[in-house]
Design a protein around this nucleic acid. Structure first.
Length: 576
RNA sequence: GCACCCAUAGCUCAGCUGGAUAGAGCGCUGCCCUCCGAAGGCAGAGGUCAAAGGUUCGAAUCCUUUUGGGUGCGCCA
């Protein structure tokens, strides 16, 4: 059970009974009625805006409605008091027993506390990472990987049927470049001196691939024309890169449900099918685009291309899907891929891209909107850059200088848990500073530590209690009776609501910030025990109080654990 | 030139998709361990929410314009 939902239901119920008794007009739309935690604790435990929202449609004064509602609400056992305040807010104070019920709910539901049926089993496809299979994942991919993974988990937790998917760009020119680069390493493995010219990938990670190729085919391709080896080497190389990328993802704890190959779209009629669908809707035509203003490319000349009329769906210009030489542009397989997602029956699509792909948002949305007839929403989340620091000094990345930082480097240096949490301490569309030293620091300005510390502290208390032979149980909670304790419980009560709003907004970072707040509330209560011994969790010679307090912090532990679970971070029992 | 993202305390950032006196960390000032982990906590100082209009009971949040940053802009993915 979730307290905010319960109380909101109660408010609605009271409003309806007022309407039934003629004290309110019938048929009011209650959709905007909200029950929220007030910013100022002096305003009680919960506040509702019902009176202000309904004042206009009801043709009544806000405070008049609020007074009537207050009267009705006060009859419920859960409500201690309901006061009209300000322009028409109704501030509610809940009974202590109601708060104690939250502790019981949390402990009873355990890992399920906060789970929601908001998504109603809707099928959602979350596409993320989707890095070109030309090398290991780097820090930029890391953020997208963590964000996408946490978003997927959050949506699952909120009742969606989620598929995590990776689109492999193995159909374009860049995999030919990869093949040629591997071929050079292959010649090198045969003892030849080779030069890496512009347009090839000189990375060391291809040395092993070249050698593996040699082991597989011997000297079969040495001195042979490209036409003979390009295709098999390309397949070999992409497969090797994808194996590398899967390992990178595994190191970070990311598990995809599905890898989708761009190449599989070619020669199977699937691109043609998707384009045909658009053509049938009258959205494909041949035309010449205007040159972009202000940029003035030197080699511009008008060309007739096959275009998708994306301007019908809010794009700025129509987009080419076929080059003047008759080959597909990259956009065509992208369309086909999303067409495929739609035909697989997803109710909602989410793409996670790097911010440098911001220019493709409108055209992709246009395509999905056109292909699905507006049925399937596509949300595109852009992840901003990660700036690396070491002890406050910018950490410059350079492929040539060998200071190129890969995902694996980061994970090996700070571990997957820290990597994941820190990546979620900023909104996805805000740039993120990642300092290798600070994220490992054990102090309160490191949110990972701060949250983990709260969990570890609880475990520490539980160990002490176990030594004393006291078991936690949600039995008699009457000894939970202090405002500071109820404040902590109130924080726990917010969790289910937070899950829903974060999921609806597609913003997993809210979970990280919530956990930081919750940890703060626990640390605060802990330290109040310095001045007020009665607030300490372990009460000598008072097993009843101790058990109640153990139930309280056990509930905190459950919520921290549930939240970290969504972020893909393992809660620790001890700080080391 | 056009589009998208961003602008909140000295610094780094939240702000629950329109609510009451705008919050946290760092930094600064002063406090709190005979006590379950002080790796923490409490208190204080610090703001024309970039600017100006508009929408309404109510705006940091929504709309318009302006200023100032970032990203992108045909036959590359």
């Amino acid at each position: 059970m979730t307290l905010f939902a319960d109380i909101r239901a109660l408010v609605i119920e009271c409003l309806e009974s007022l309407a039934a008794r003629g004290r309110l007009p019938a048929g009011l739309d209650m959709g905007n009625v909200a029950v929220e935690p007030p910013r100022d604790p002096a305003h009680g435990d919960m506040a509702t805006n019902a009176a202000m929202v309904l004042a206009k449609p009801a043709g009544m004064k806000p405070r008049e409605i609020a007074a009537a509602l207050a009267e009705a609400l006060a009859e419920d056992a859960r409500i201690d008091s309901a006061e009209v305040a300000g322009p028409g807010f109704l501030n509610l104070r809940l009974s202590e027993e109601t708060w104690r019920g939250v502790i019981r709910s949390v402990l009873a539901d355990g890992a399920g506390y906060g789970r929601s049926d908001l998504g109603q089993g809707q099928k959602v496809n979350v596409e993320y990472v989707s890095a070109n299979p030309t090398g290991p994942l780097h820090v930029g991919h890391t953020r997208g990987a963590v964000f996408g993974d946490a978003l997927a988990a959050l949506l699952e937790y909120a009742g969606h049927d989620v598929t995590r998917e990776y689109y492999i760009n193995d159909g374009g020119a860049q995999v030919d470049v990869l093949a040629r680069s591997v071929y050079l390493r292959y010649l090198e493995a045969h003892g030849q001196k080779v030069a890496f010219e512009d347009g090839t990938y000189p990375g060391d990670y291809l040395i092993a691939v070249g050698e593996a190729l040699k082991d597989k085919v011997g000297d079969a391709y040495v001195g042979k024309p490209e036409a003979l080896w390009l295709e098999p080497v390309r397949d070999f190389a992409t497969e090797a890169m994808m194996a590398l990328i899967r390992e990178d993802l595994a190191a970070l704890g990311v598990k995809m449900d599905h890898f989708y190959s761009e190449k599989s779209l070619y020669g199977t009629g699937r691109i043609e099918d998707a384009i045909e669908d658009l053509r049938a809707k009258g959205l494909i035509y041949k035309g010449v685009l205007e040159p972009p203003k202000g940029k003035q490319p030197e080699d511009w000349e008008p060309r007739e291309q096959t275009l998708f009329k994306s301007t019908d769906y809010g794009d700025d210009v129509d987009r080419p899907i076929m080059k003047s030489d008759g080959a597909w542009t990259y956009f065509a397989p992208d369309i086909a891929y999303h067409y495929d997602k739609i035909t697989r029956g997803y109710d909602q699509l989410i793409d996670v891209f790097g911010a440098d792909h911001g220019g493709y948002v409108k055209r992709m949305k246009a395509a999905v909107s056109a292909l699905s007839g507006g049925r399937v929403p596509l949300d595109i989340k852009l992840t901003q850059l990660v700036k690396l620091y070491k002890n406050g000094e910018p950490f410059k990345m350079s492929k040539r200088a060998g200071t190129f930082v890969t995902l694996r480097d980061v994970v090996e240096m700070v571990g997957p848990d820290v990597t994941r949490f820190v990546m979620l301490t900023r909104k996805n569309d805000a740039p993120l500073d990642f300092d290798f030293e600070k994220v490992r620091e054990q102090s309160k300005d490191n949110p990972v530590f701060y949250v983990q510390y709260a969990h570890a502290r609880i475990c520490s208390v539980q160990r002490k209690a176990a030594e004393a032979g006291i078991a936690a149980e949600a039995g008699d909670l009457a000894r939970i009776d202090h405002p500071a304790e109820f404040a902590l419980v109130a924080k726990l009560a917010e969790w289910p609501r937070l899950v829903e709003t974060a999921a609806a907004a597609h913003e997993p970072h809210r979970v990280a910030f919530y956990l930081y707040d919750l940890a703060g509330a626990l640390h605060g209560l802990w330290n109040k025990g310095n001045a007020e011994p009665g607030l300490r969790f372990l009460q000598d010679d008072d097993p009843v109080a101790t058990k109640a307090k153990l139930a309280l912090i056990g509930a905190v532990q459950v919520v921290i654990s549930n939240g970290l679970g969504i972020l893909g971070v393992t809660p620790v029992e001890e700080m080391r």
